[in-house]
Design a protein around this nucleic acid. Sequence first.
DNA 1: GAGATAAATGAACGTCATTCATTTATTGGT
DNA 2: ACCAATAAATGAATGACGTTCATTTATCTC
Lengths: 227, 227
Amino acid sequence: MPEPIPAPGEPKARRRAGRPMAAVLDQDGITAAALELISKKGYDGLTMAALARSLGVAPSALYNHVSSKDEVLKLVEEDLMSKVDFGGFSTLPWEEAVRQWAYSYRGIFARHTPLISVIAVLPVTDAPQTLAMYEAVTEGFLRAGFPEKQIIPSIVALEAYIFGAAFDANAPADIFDSGRLADSTPHFTSAVRSLGPERNNYPSDLAFSMGLDALITGLGALRTQPN
Amino acid sequence: MPEPIPAPGEPKARRRAGRPMAAVLDQDGITAAALELISKKGYDGLTMAALARSLGVAPSALYNHVSSKDEVLKLVEEDLMSKVDFGGFSTLPWEEAVRQWAYSYRGIFARHTPLISVIAVLPVTDAPQTLAMYEAVTEGFLRAGFPEKQIIPSIVALEAYIFGAAFDANAPADIFDSGRLADSTPHFTSAVRSLGPERNNYPSDLAFSMGLDALITGLGALRTQPN
DNA sequence: GAGATAAATGAACGTCATTCATTTATTGGT
DNA sequence: ACCAATAAATGAATGACGTTCATTTATCTC
């Protein structure tokens, strides 16, 4: 019995120094623990110490499996990308496929905005899930009749919109409250008020839908063959 | 002579403890120093210690004028907002005014992406420059014949796109290099290659232009009165 | 003039990511 | 089957960084 079963009364059985018989850590486990930590404590709670703690390990042990906290973020990003629903591109009309994809994409990253600054600049090389998504989306655009040269720019434009909208989705309801300066911004203040009976009704979802429709219509016009 | 002229040979004349006769700091000076620091060393170089150093002051002195580093970021943001060119809304046709505004907005924040996470969620209350911009843009939309209720969502959608595109503008040229996984993503890889003779030609500007045109066309269709 | 307040210094704190020496277990080559 | 190299853990240490606090000095207000 080299593996003493952790007695319920004594969860504190500390590992002694040295390599354990069975590896405790790997990248998948680190990724899963990071995701759970983020969902429970947010990105402020994601520290190397907290991550190590949740894995029952000393912080320095993490560095045998990842080179930095940034790499942890990259692992999380890849995992999230695999959850984006791009299935519509093989079954639905292009417009609906884009809409489904965009909503799924925004929904996921709205709760992970701190990753966006990382993703937007992260080379796609060695990011298999991200590449799989791009491949499926590209295929959908081809099938819909887009000229090859228009596809990447169109995807980039859509992604930019999705990322921006993900930030938006976290804005507080009173973000457009002009407060003491309402008098000097009459048109804006009135436009904000026109949105609903309750003041400060932030239109994040409405805006997302409107802009997405505009993009779909505008980009869709680039197709050379119908459907 | 209460103010000893700093002798050129001795720039190190340290201030002794206690309130100086003339105040050394104020919010405007802090903002300007922060902007210069950012432009020289980037956002990683913007630390309270470095900021204090560039102002010839102890770090703790900053806290007599700002309550936190986050407030410094808010001050910088307001300053940048005042540089966004929204002048077209009072002189140009709506489409061109939006284009000019969007390009200016993106151009400025592309070099300040770390602020975007702050801005996107920051209430507009007590942000006069930001409010001034919104007021001018709202007026432009009204003049162009937009129904009042559509204006804020349209602006929000455009801003989301602009912020996302600002991130994009910082992506490395090889961001779409599929590397060893090129074989498993043939359509995507081909679409990327179709963009130019040199591999990995990142189409940030082209994409921005395409998406912006689509948004302008799509949102413009919401107008009820022409021009 | 005296007390309150404002604006600076300098020391100190707590947190965080990261590194290093050390210990122990496994793996690969001869 | 040994032995060197490597892998995976601990624990101590480091250096940044944001922030707080006691203290000092100057100005403002009653």
